[in-house]
Nucleic acid binder design. Sequence first.
DNA 1: ATACTAAGTAAAGTATGTCTAACTTTTTTT
DNA 2: AAAAAAAGTTAGACATACTTTACTTAGTAT
Lengths: 165, 165
Amino acid sequence: MKKGEKLSESLEDYLEVILELETTRKVARAKDIAEKTGVKRGSVTSALKSLGEKKLINYEPYSYVTLTPEGKKIAEGISSRHSILKEFLYKILQIDETEAEATACRMEHAVDQKTLDRLVCFFDFIYKCPRLGVNRLQAFMKRCGKKIPDPATCKKCMDSSADEK
Amino acid sequence: MKKGEKLSESLEDYLEVILELETTRKVARAKDIAEKTGVKRGSVTSALKSLGEKKLINYEPYSYVTLTPEGKKIAEGISSRHSILKEFLYKILQIDETEAEATACRMEHAVDQKTLDRLVCFFDFIYKCPRLGVNRLQAFMKRCGKKIPDPATCKKCMDSSADEK
DNA sequence: ATACTAAGTAAAGTATGTCTAACTTTTTTT
DNA sequence: AAAAAAAGTTAGACATACTTTACTTAGTAT
């Protein structure tokens, strides 16, 4: 698996699921992979063969699979993308958790490393800038679309202490 | 084209490009579509047939194509997703324009309407909240990863007027 | 230990979406 | 108006990724 070649979204999903299963149940079995990814068992076999050829998993027919170091690195990368995106959707945009989860799943294949780095940096600002106050943003997002603060509200807010709710 | 069925990423891309060509050159021709999408002419023909069957474009062999009202609605939706995502990447995360463009292209197929609505709402806060001051956030993002403000800097910022650079 | 059941695999079929190469239609040039 | 060029189409091939059905292997229970 050369660095230049990039995995299909489908194979990325398999790796992510395998990592999750390895973590929660020690080993990943085809049946569980099928359930988690929502595909049939037969499809899993093909995917595992493909991942095995790419040296991303240790695959022996009729046995459970484990990630190779290379595969694990990739899986962890995807998982990290997922978490960061979900955090943005859930914590910043205040989208409900289930939906945030699903959208993060779709987005995780589309973002590159730079965007993620920037997102993390962005979180840093949002969470730490005392002038902003993350609660203030979150409160605004929660009533998103309902009403935009009028100038008077803004003035009041400006005069208040930064750390308050 | 029922509301429930959703287009493949590929077909979404074609619609988006067709809209763009209709806008900039009045009509969309297969050759231009091929260039914009980066596929060969033969592939475009197949895609156009498929879009034609779905009543999203008016397709007659050997003629240029136009979007049906339904197709236009979808294309505009995708285009809007693209713009909003690009704005987030470019204006907020301060990713350079070319890269923001490319990433938005990949992400536009993954986000749903709710996420977009929230993003727009989020922009509203970021741009309008005088306490935050969008310039402050942008300045922070520009030097992203270089250094995080120390408490002293924060204090100084808190004491300064909100609208300053 | 054998028979049963659950899990895994294999093969054949479907659907997308791409390419190439040959062919047809349209447009342009002369 | 005929020839040449450009644009569009068709057909066959390939890759991915999925399903279904039938078969094989592994694990469990008696």
